[in-house]
Amino acid sequence: TTYKLILNGKTLKGETTTEAVDAETAERVFKEYAKKNGVDGEWTYDDATKTFTVTE
């Protein structure tokens, strides 16, 4: 399944996708990605669109 991440950081904005077996796995991948890019904020997930959003 393809999951999407929307980054709404103070200095970094953008989108990325990952293939994962479930939302929990995708969330771990995306949180590591955000951490590596210095983005830390509020996380939300929309199951209907398989989209995570992190907003600083």
Results as ranks from 00 to 15, higher is better:
28 R>F: 10
39 V>N: 03
11 T>G: 11
43 W>M: 04
35 K>M: 14
50 K>W: 06
47 D>S: 10
18 T>V: 13
33 Y>T: 03
2 T>V: 11
51 T>Q: 05
49 T>W: 04
48 A>D: 13
20 A>N: 03
47 D>G: 11
22 D>W: 03
54 V>H: 01
43 W>N: 00
5 L>N: 00
44 T>S: 15
26 A>L: 00
46 D>I: 05
5 L>P: 00
7 L>T: 05
1 T>S: 10
46 D>T: 05
28 R>V: 10
17 T>M: 10
22 D>H: 04
43 W>C: 02
43 W>E: 00
34 A>T: 07
3 Y>C: 01
15 E>P: 04
6 I>R: 06
43 W>G: 00
26 A>F: 01
42 E>T: 14
41 G>A: 02
33 Y>W: 14
31 K>V: 07
7 L>Y: 10
18 T>R: 05
28 R>W: 07
52 F>H: 02
29 V>N: 06
49 T>R: 06
23 A>K: 08
14 G>Y: 10
29 V>D: 05
40 D>K: 10
10 K>H: 15
31 K>Q: 08
31 K>W: 07
29 V>K: 10
10 K>A: 14
14 G>K: 14
29 V>H: 15
16 T>V: 14
37 N>L: 15
50 K>P: 00
53 T>R: 06
55 T>S: 10
31 K>H: 10
49 T>H: 07
16 T>F: 15
3 Y>W: 09
40 D>L: 12
27 E>H: 10
53 T>F: 08
15 E>M: 14
20 A>G: 04
9 G>Q: 04
41 G>K: 01
33 Y>R: 03
12 L>D: 05
42 E>D: 09
28 R>Y: 07
12 L>H: 15
52 F>I: 01
23 A>Q: 14
2 T>Y: 10
49 T>G: 05
43 W>D: 00
54 V>A: 03
28 R>K: 13
40 D>F: 14
16 T>C: 08
17 T>S: 09
39 V>W: 12
37 N>D: 03
17 T>F: 13
3 Y>I: 01
22 D>E: 05
3 Y>D: 00
27 E>M: 14
51 T>R: 03
19 E>M: 11
12 L>G: 07
44 T>C: 06
8 N>Y: 13
27 E>V: 07
18 T>P: 01
3 Y>E: 00
29 V>C: 06
7 L>N: 02
53 T>L: 06
45 Y>H: 02
2 T>P: 06
29 V>E: 09
43 W>S: 01
56 E>Q: 13
56 E>L: 08
53 T>N: 05
31 K>E: 04
17 T>R: 07
33 Y>C: 04
40 D>Q: 14
55 T>M: 07
26 A>I: 02
2 T>A: 06
14 G>A: 14
36 K>Y: 11
46 D>F: 05
2 T>G: 05
23 A>H: 14
49 T>D: 05
51 T>F: 02
55 T>V: 08
31 K>L: 08
51 T>I: 06
39 V>S: 03
45 Y>C: 01
